[in-house]
Design a protein around this nucleic acid. Structure first.
Lengths: 237, 237
DNA sequence: CGGTTTGTTGAGCCCTATCAAGGTAGGTGG
DNA sequence: CCACCTACCTTGATAGGGCTCAACAAACCG
């Protein structure tokens, strides 16, 4: 009972559902299932069919391809309040990615039918789902753009800038959202290359790396850096 | 008048709208605009806001990034019956890509408001839009997978196999849907590399290239080929 | 403190881009 | 019918960015 109320409140706070009526929320909550994962646990494998979608309440889920040869490529790191699996659910096709918890996490599972019911009753909700998927598509396109026509350094800079949020300039400290191994994969780099690029940016006095914490000296300067100057003039000290 | 009827019929035949009632179709047709493009003409630039979306009746539209340095990367080649721009419309954000006609084309433009009206009145239609966007997302993810963990040869093979359709084995002749320059960009290759890869596959007796026509000798064998054998043992014939 | 995971550094190589010349085909005008 | 032009493609030589392999360092953890 308390659990039900708790679920409703959790759902109501999620971006996707914020404008729903209480009765709608109650409907969704009634069919939503709570899922707890411990770090490293796999939620679903590549190839599975989904009969609903997931919402991350807290924790972190990684979505990745896994090729037969064992190498893995992280597509997305899903954090609190974000949902995933809708596309696979709507398509009724095998999932192209696996989902694995990067840390202990709590999820909600919403069944397809109750989502469809919500769509049927509230077309504004349908529009919001459409907008949500569109955003997802947009960021994937940006990923493709990054992979195709930017260098390793540019990709990392882009990534760091996104972590800094909207700040235009000045210095800012940020924490990498996952291990460097995972970040590297997300950026389509080997861990070795990521390490070298970080090192290189350090030598150019653009950032200071301390474990998972990175101090960006000057956001504006980092944004302008194109990776051309190879810290060559750093010998004069 | 005749034009209106023609529009309705065209709309009704499109995958997206096939299950709509006639009255709905009429509503959409009333607000749809017809657009004719000649080869090379640009429909919209990167950065534009869309107040509707487009459907290709016939012809071919290319969606591509354009970087300031002038190099261009083709994201998608849109053919007859396919739509594009929905995501940009829903997001109300600048388009990340430009759209340009690869050949003389005829399009329909459907305004946002009439689409929203259709969604409001028919939730099954909303679901179909959601499924459509999901498919788009899915194929983008496949692209990312291709770019990230496959070699140039593997990407080309994948591309050719998609063109062959569902055929499991045997030989089949197919026509490249665009110039090799465009195909190369679509596969994230330079034209030079594409040419070399095609040549290499020819030498392995997997395909025969004749201009834009490609004869796949054996679909099954092409599917298995991993690019490892470098036509080195082709001397013993 | 050992053991394990995580990250760094170095050497060498391979794939693919780049630069630079040729070909080839289709269209046009003499 | 030929010469020419332009767009498209091919071929060759070269170089560089990022990967691979291997060893080491550092941090985390029981």
């Amino acid at each position: 009972m308390d659990k039900q109320i708790d679920l409703s409140r959790t759902l109501a706070n999620l971006p996707l559902f914020q404008q729903l009526r209480e009765s709608e929320i109650a409907n969704l909550a009634a069919s939503a299932r709570e899922i707890r994962l411990s770090k490293g646990q796999i939620l679903f494998q590549k190839g599975i069919l989904l009969d609903g979608f997931y919402i991350t309440v807290y924790g972190q889920i990684k979505l990745a391809f896994s090729s037969p040869q064992g190498n893995e490529k992280v597509v997305s790191i899903v954090g609190s309040g974000q949902s995933f699996g809708e596309a696979v659910m709507f398509m009724e096709r095998p999932s192209p990615v696996l989902a694995q918890a990067l840390e202990d996490s709590r999820l909600l599972y919403v069944a397809k039918q109750s989502l469809f019911a919500a769509i049927d009753r509230d077309s504004a909700f349908a529009r919001r789902m459409l907008a949500g998927l569109s955003m997802r598509l947009h960021s994937l396109i940006e990923d493709v753009e990054n992979y195709s026509l930017r260098s390793s350094t540019q990709r990392l800079i882009e990534f760091l800038l996104q972590l800094t949020g909207a700040s235009e300039s000045g210095s800012i400290e940020l924490k990498l959202p996952a291990s460097k191994h995972v970040i590297a994969s997300r950026l389509n780099l080997t861990p070795e290359t990521l390490s070298r690029v970080l090192h290189n940016l350090s030598e150019c006095n653009l950032i200071t790396v301390k474990g998972r914490y990175i101090l960006v000296q000057d956001v504006a300067r980092l944004r302008c850096f194109d990776g051309l100057s190879r810290a060559s003039e750093a010998e004069s000290d």
